[in-house]
Amino acid sequence: MKVSELKMGDKITQCIENSIIAFEVMAVKQIGRRFVVTFNSAFGTETASYQGDACIPTA
């Protein structure tokens, strides 16, 4: 899914050191051509910035 299409509540998984970590999209904010996405996981809440046409696998 393109980052520009993400919505609050979308689920993302990532394999980190042989463990699957689940992330939930908490917020998506467009700033110019970039999108700032806030994720929540077992490790807490984090924010990342992406170009709108970047792709992220969703569950």
Rank of each mutant, 00 (worst) to 15 (best):
M1L: 14
M1V: 13
M1F: 14
K2P: 05
K2T: 10
K2V: 08
V3Q: 03
V3C: 02
V3I: 06
S4M: 02
S4I: 03
E5N: 00
E5Y: 01
L6P: 00
L6M: 01
K7R: 04
M8K: 09
G9R: 01
G9D: 03
G9N: 02
D10Y: 02
K11H: 08
I12T: 05
I12R: 05
T13Q: 11
T13G: 05
Q14M: 15
Q14P: 06
Q14G: 12
C15N: 15
C15I: 13
C15E: 15
C15W: 15
I16S: 13
I16T: 14
E17S: 07
E17A: 08
N18Y: 14
N18T: 09
N18C: 11
N18P: 04
S19T: 14
S19C: 14
I20C: 10
I21H: 09
I21E: 14
I21P: 04
A22D: 14
A22C: 11
A22K: 14
F23N: 04
F23E: 13
F23V: 07
F23R: 07
E24S: 06
E24N: 03
V25Y: 10
V25L: 06
V25M: 05
M26E: 12
M26S: 06
A27I: 07
A27G: 02
V28E: 07
V28T: 04
K29W: 12
K29I: 10
K29H: 09
K29Q: 09
K29G: 02
K29L: 11
Q30H: 03
Q30F: 06
Q30E: 07
Q30R: 04
Q30N: 01
Q30S: 01
I31E: 13
G32W: 01
R33G: 04
R33Q: 09
R34A: 07
R34D: 10
R34I: 06
F35T: 00
V36C: 04
V36G: 00
V36N: 07
V37W: 06
T38L: 09
T38F: 03
T38E: 10
F39M: 06
F39C: 03
F39V: 04
F39H: 08
N40M: 14
S41T: 04
S41M: 06
A42Y: 10
A42N: 11
F43D: 15
F43Y: 15
F43T: 13
F43R: 13
F43W: 15
G44D: 08
T45N: 09
T45A: 05
T45F: 12
T45L: 10
E46M: 12
E46D: 12
T47K: 07
T47Y: 04
T47P: 00
T47C: 05
T47S: 05
S49A: 12
S49E: 13
S49F: 11
S49P: 03
Y50N: 02
Y50M: 01
Y50S: 00
Y50E: 07
Q51F: 08
Q51P: 03
Q51D: 11
Q51T: 08
Q51N: 08
G52A: 00
D53Q: 02
D53R: 00
D53K: 01
A54H: 11
A54G: 02
A54Q: 11
A54M: 10
A54C: 07
A54E: 15
C55K: 15
I56V: 13
I56C: 04
P57R: 12
P57H: 12
P57N: 13
P57V: 11
P57S: 13
T58D: 09
T58A: 07
T58Y: 12
A59E: 09
